[in-house]
């Protein structure tokens, strides 16, 4: 093999032309990376930084070390309440997944007007969370509410769901489940379209039906839909801010706060502007979310590796 000197025009080509293949992907990434850094990565760093200070958002920051975290984790009942409410949200919100699945199975048939029924079931997801919150808070009203009217028919006494600290959070979660179930239903409806009819037929020939059919044949094929439903439901549970703000404003006496609402109250509400403390709550919430995000990323990575 003889050494062939590069053609003259190749040597005269610029640096970019020579490295085109290696550089171009990074060039395409730059805008996204830049915006992601400015709007996500850097603010996360700033939140960490602020959380070690005491700051009213106007004057100078005072360095307080880990004092905010010490108070938050060991000496703050509001934080404890908010944390456990977050857990309740996370667990109960998952009910939207089986709920959505069964509505989807129920609606996955060809009857006249099925499109109309489907869109009616999907309706709560289309309207704003604020409207959902308002509708449910009227539904729960202690005297005029529909819920108490229904209970009265069965002779059950009037209840004030949102006014009782032991039931208020569950009342809000129930309101949140309404649109979330609709969302999961849509995910499963699309998933059901992709179910392989030949497999179903083969299973039927083998004598599978009912629950066994669902569990061993349909559900495994719906795995991608289940995964997405799980992700959006977890994220939805952690973002449960607007419903709380509209329905109870964190009350009665702070019993329905979650971490995101508490963070808002401490840092940005009318009586807030304790930026350092709010940032500390945000950091804790960030780590909780990070746990889920890492899990999601890991399972996606595993799936991709398996598919290869």
């Amino acid at each position: 093999m003889t050494y062939v000197s590069p053609p003259p025009e190749a040597r005269s080509r610029g640096w970019y032309k020579r490295n085109e293949i290696a550089v171009t992907p990074f060039l395409f990434l730059i805008p996204a990376v830049l915006f992601f850094a400015i709007y996500v990565i850097i603010p996360i760093g700033q939140s960490f930084w602020i959380s070690f200070h005491e700051w009213d958002g106007l004057g100078d920051k005072t360095w307080v070390g880990t004092a905010n975290y010490e108070r938050l984790l060991f000496d703050d009942r509001k934080f404890t309440t908010s944390f456990w409410n977050n857990i309740k949200w996370l667990v109960l919100y998952l009910l939207a997944i089986p709920g959505g699945l069964f509505i989807a199975l129920f609606l996955n048939q060809t009857v006249t007007g099925i499109r109309l029924y489907k869109s009616l079931f999907f309706f709560p997801f289309v309207i704003s969370q604020v409207v959902v919150g308002l509708v449910f808070s009227w539904f729960y009203l202690p005297r005029e509410g529909l819920l108490n009217a229904i209970l009265a028919v069965f002779g059950a006494g009037p209840v004030n769901i949102l006014g009782d600290p032991s039931t208020a959070t569950y009342g809000i979660i129930a309101a949140g489940l309404w649109p979330q179930t609709a969302y999961c239903m849509i995910l499963y409806l699309t998933g059901l379209n992709a179910v392989d009819p030949e497999q179903v037929e083969a299973a039927r020939l083998d004598g599978a039906k009912g629950w066994r059919m669902l569990w061993y044949v349909i559900l495994p094929q719906l795995r991608p839909a289940t995964f997405i439903a799980f992700v959006v439901t977890i994220i939805g549970a952690l973002r449960s801010f607007d419903l709380i703000s509209v329905m109870t404003n964190g009350g009665p006496f702070g019993s329905t706060r979650v971490l995101s609402f508490y963070m808002f109250e401490e840092s940005l509400s009318e009586f807030g502007f304790r930026m350092g403390y709010g940032a500390a709550i945000a950091v804790v919430l960030f780590f909780i979310m990070l746990g889920f995000i890492v899990y999601f990323l890991w399972s996606m990575w595993r799936d991709e590796k398996g598919a290869r």
């Binding site: 006014g163 009350g251 009665p252 006496f253 702070g254 109250e265 009318e270 009586f271 807030g272 502007f273």
Partner: peptide
């Protein structure tokens, strides 16, 4: 002060219930 007012009013509401 703002923070005392918000903690305080929450306590007052709880007391009334």
């Amino acid at each position: 002060p703002a923070e005392m007012a918000s903690v305080g009013m929450e306590g007052l509401q709880e007391f009334m219930v």
